[in-house]
Design a protein around this nucleic acid. Structure first.
Lengths: 205, 205
DNA sequence: GTCTATAACTCGATAGAC
DNA sequence: GTCTATCGAGTTATAGAC
């Protein structure tokens, strides 16, 4: 009789615990002991399942990113018109981060610690294709639908407005004095506010 | 004869070294040995001047923020008109980060690790006053100079666009394929591009 | 104040019983 | 597969000579 894999297998318990600890503390800050406690097992078992701390970390990292990027990338490189693509992108991105609020900081740290390793693991050699967006912006500018705009600056602006509030959440919460719940509502609003802000900037003078 | 304090006193050497190591590696990633090497002294002296690693770190943190915030805050809470305030804010902010490119990531990590401690040390109880900006936006909207806009969303947008590119620099560099020098030029451009992007969004439909 | 030497401790990893 | 016990490398911190 084949053993049915359950969500509470030891391996799953370890992964769940490791996800939590690595994502909140980073690689250097995480402790194997803490992961073991969180999983309700002992340190030795961690090494039995995943040879080393580094290997366990890499597992979490790759798994996390692969749950995050594909859909966002698909929207970004699609041929949806700008007025649909930008809202779709923001909405998908913000939803993913609302569901996994610690990932942005985690990723930002990895990006800065081991950039080449990181992108090799995530993109596997080929990077996101921005050429479609560039063509769209050119075309829209030619038709006078928007003013001419640097694609690079635009990409930076969109990503910044979507991601940064999550990375700096504790600061914004203290400046404007809001709870976690209110923060979530604010981010929900931003799924619409960011696109309309951007479209206004693109059309404006 | 009174000893003149020079920039190369042992204490200064330690602070310079600690700044570099802590800012690039964070508290957990930093090694006292590395700081000692960087300063050209031995580990014992670090403890002689600053009792512990934590104390040394706190010194760096507070010093860093106090070199960073006052001018930015002054602009933010000034009564400059919007068309001047926003460019001044972006310009000052980006200049500071160009001069200290690792600070944004450093700060973002501190914000997330010990938010209450952090803001107590930095703001000492009172937080930045956003009321002036709120009034300015209201007034401008009443005079039909800009469309009505949520101050909170606007503040998030401005800060995000200024800070996030520094935090995610390695990613942007790889996506658009640029060197450190080109990145710097891009950020110089943004000192103008962000304000014009924002003003266009504020005026637009 | 500055150094060398080393104590005290943290933490990842392994050995070996069950 | 899972546990207890422990090793050993790496680090912070201190003792004590100069």
């Amino acid at each position: 009789m084949v053993k049915i894999k359950t969500d509470t297998s030891t391996e799953e318990k370890i992964l769940t615990a490791a996800r939590k600890v690595f994502i909140t503390n980073g690689l250097a800050g995480a402790r194997m002991q803490e992961i073991a406690n969180e999983a309700g097992i002992n340190k030795a078992l961690l090494h039995y399942y995943f040879r080393s701390k580094d290997k366990l970390f890499e597992t979490i990292l790759v798994e996390t990113m692969q749950s995050f990027l594909p859909r966002v990338n698909a929207i970004f490189t699609s041929d949806l018109p700008l007025e649909e693509k930008i809202p779709a992108f923001c909405s998908e991105y913000i939803d993913k981060m609302l569901a996994n609020p610690f990932i942005p900081l985690f990723v930002v740290n990895e990006i800065n610690n081991q950039p080449d390793d990181f992108f090799k693991k995530i993109w596997g050699g080929k990077k996101p294709d921005v050429s479609i967006l560039v063509k769209q912006l050119d075309a829209a500018a030619n038709e006078k639908k928007i003013r001419p705009v640097s694609p690079v600056q635009l990409i930076m602006n969109i990503m910044s407005m979507c991601v940064f509030p999550f990375v700096a959440k504790p600061m914004f919460q203290r400046v404007i004095g809001i709870s976690d719940k209110q923060f979530r509502l604010l981010m929900e609003e931003r799924k619409k506010d960011i696109p309309s802000f951007i479209m206004a900037a693109l059309r404006g003078s």
